[in-house]
């Protein structure tokens, strides 16, 4: 396992310039570059308050080679709605695409109302959620997308707690329930798949949602060289199923050729370290395994594939 971020980044062009201040091994920085590269230059972007905004735009510097606006933590989807309306009224919508971005906290928690409103109104916007599974910008607090048992500073493991007491909110399904025409999950471990999904989303009129799994070495407490490996394990264990919905129907999944036990994913991450210290911790790992297995069954991740993702052939890179 030696695919590191540098290899992947080499393939990218520069609408998202380097020189920003993301930590080493930041999955979110990589995710944003991949999304931008797939989107091309005729886009307007919004970004919610969070790591992405902080490390990419510190006056007088900016990494963004396309028009970009950051307003607040909770309003990325609503600001994007305004941009879309302005493009519509000036006849530029369609040629110019709108992408709203936010972290998992911005998307699933504080900005959830704005997100729901944007979908409900049917704006022609792609919303991308960079899911690093906690509030990283403020130093690793629990979000609605923090997985079960992960220790964060507001869901700490302690004498009376195993970490986050709740399972990850199933946001993609919630978005599907809004009747959104295109919903997908993706991962920085699968850059070609992410690229294809962004392009596909932008070819569809109406609201779209992509949730990208982006490890955070600092918050997940894993070696910063392992970002891609960890992301890959999340998919291969079934904990982060890569799925695509069109008009409410599951149209494709990334299959798992051979199931990896969740332990292999949890072990290298400090946020789960407390599970490995006792027998009771072990039984918590069992619970997580059951969650992974449920995903595998629910999305037929190991079944024979009329639903398999068609292989993507790189034309560039």
């Amino acid at each position: 396992m030696s695919r590191n971020i540098r290899d992947v980044e080499k393939a990218l062009d520069h609408t998202f310039a380097s020189g920003h201040s993301a930590c080493s091994g930041c999955g979110e920085a990589l995710g944003a570059r991949l999304v931008l590269r797939a989107a091309g230059k005729n886009v307007i972007l919004t970004t919610a308050t969070g790591c992405l905004e902080v490390f990419s735009a510190n006056y007088p510097y900016s990494s963004w080679g396309v028009p970009w606006i950051h307003s607040l933590f909770e309003n990325s989807a609503a600001v994007a709605s305004g941009i879309e309306a302005a493009l519509r009224v000036t006849g530029k919508l369609g040629k110019t695409k709108v992408i709203a971005q936010g972290g998992d906290g911005a998307t699933a928690d504080i900005g959830f109302g704005a997100l729901s409103g944007m979908f409900d109104r049917g704006h022609d916007i792609l919303y991308v959620c960079y899911d690093n599974e906690a509030y990283m910008n403020t130093g690793v607090q629990r979000s609605g997308l923090t997985p079960y048992d992960a220790s964060t500073t507001t869901s700490p493991a302690g004498k009376e707690a195993w970490g986050n007491p709740r399972p990850k909110k199933d946001l993609p399904q919630i978005v599907v329930a809004h009747g959104v025409p295109y919903v997908a999950t993706a991962s920085v471990a699968y850059p070609h798949d992410l690229d294809r999904k962004v392009k596909k989303a932008l070819s569809i009129h109406g609201p779209k949602y992509i949730q990208v799994h982006v490890p955070c070495p600092l918050g997940w407490r894993h070696d910063s060289a392992l970002t891609i490996d960890i992301a890959e394990l999340a998919v291969k264990t079934g904990l982060y199923p890569l799925v695509e919905f069109e008009n409410g129907k599951l149209v494709a999944v990334r299959r798992i050729p051979k199931k990896v036990p969740v332990e292999e994913y949890l072990k290298p991450q400090g946020r789960f370290a407390h599970l490995f210290r006792s027998e009771e911790g072990r039984s918590q790992i069992e619970v997580i395994q059951v969650m992974a297995d449920a995903n595998i069954e629910r999305y037929h991740l190991m079944a024979r594939p009329e639903t398999e993702v068609e292989p993507w052939s790189p034309t560039e890179a």
């Binding site: 403020t138 130093g139 607090q141 500073t153 507001t154 700490p156 493991a157 302690g158 004498k159 009376e160």
Partner: peptide, 17 residues
Amino acid sequence: PITPQTGIVEELAQMVA
């Protein structure tokens, strides 16, 4: 959580945990 208040919340969360 919000910087620079977060430390208070984190301390309290740990006390409860």
